[in-house]
Design a protein around this nucleic acid. Structure first.
Length: 173
DNA sequence: AGCAAGATCGGT
DNA sequence: CCGATCTTGCTG
């Protein structure tokens, strides 16, 4: 049985239902030769306009427009003028949610992993369901998921800052 | 048009 | 702790 690319129905669920299932799966980068697979180990959920840590908290803008699309699209943005943040849009059309991919095995930190994988602004809006250069595959990797507060969201206030919406997998190898 | 802040990171 | 580096969104 071969590896299975995740389909639309996986991504259109609520971000908090998907988040614990994404660590352990593969990000597949197809460079045109031999596709490279990276195990996702840490993600962070951003959920709707009410979530003051979410980029959609101030409504639709040019930057966050893709968050309002159906789940399965990619949302990337540049932070501090240097680092591309890779996010997977989740939920149904009109419901702005996304999962920040915080680390993959071997590369800790969202800025570092994007640089290593070659993620940049050209991936904005890319569809993980149909793209020929990036997609997600299921795996049999097992691990224990622990939740923690999100990082770097002090600006959102104590209530949203304290939500345990960071999901970390400790790989059992 | 100008400005402050930012879902970060690596070096002191 | 601090600087790098530039886009974004808010103010006027």
């Amino acid at each position: 049985m071969s590896a299975q690319r995740l389909s639309r129905s996986f991504y259109t669920n609520d971000v908090l239902d998907i988040a614990p299932h994404l660590p352990g799966k593969f990000i597949v980068m197809n460079n045109g030769h031999c596709p490279e697979k990276y195990i996702i180990t840490e993600v962070e959920a951003y959920r709707g306009e009410e979530d003051l840590a979410c980029h959609a908290s101030k409504g639709r803008t040019r930057r966050n427009e893709i968050m309002y699309a159906d789940g399965g699209h990619i949302y990337v943005y540049l932070i501090y003028g240097m680092y591309w943040m890779l996010n997977f849009v989740t939920g149904k059309n009109g419901n702005p949610q996304a999962l920040l991919i915080r680390s993959v095995e071997g590369y800790n930190g969202p800025g570092v992993l994007s640089r290593k994988l070659g993620i940049d602004g050209s991936y904005y809006g890319e569809d993980l369901v149909s793209s020929d250069r990036i997609w997600i595959e299921d795996s049999n990797i097992k691990g224990k998921i622990v939740t923690r507060p999100r990082i770097g969201v002090d600006y959102a206030g104590e209530y949203w800052k304290s939500k345990p919406w960071r999901f970390v997998m400790n790989l059992q190898i």
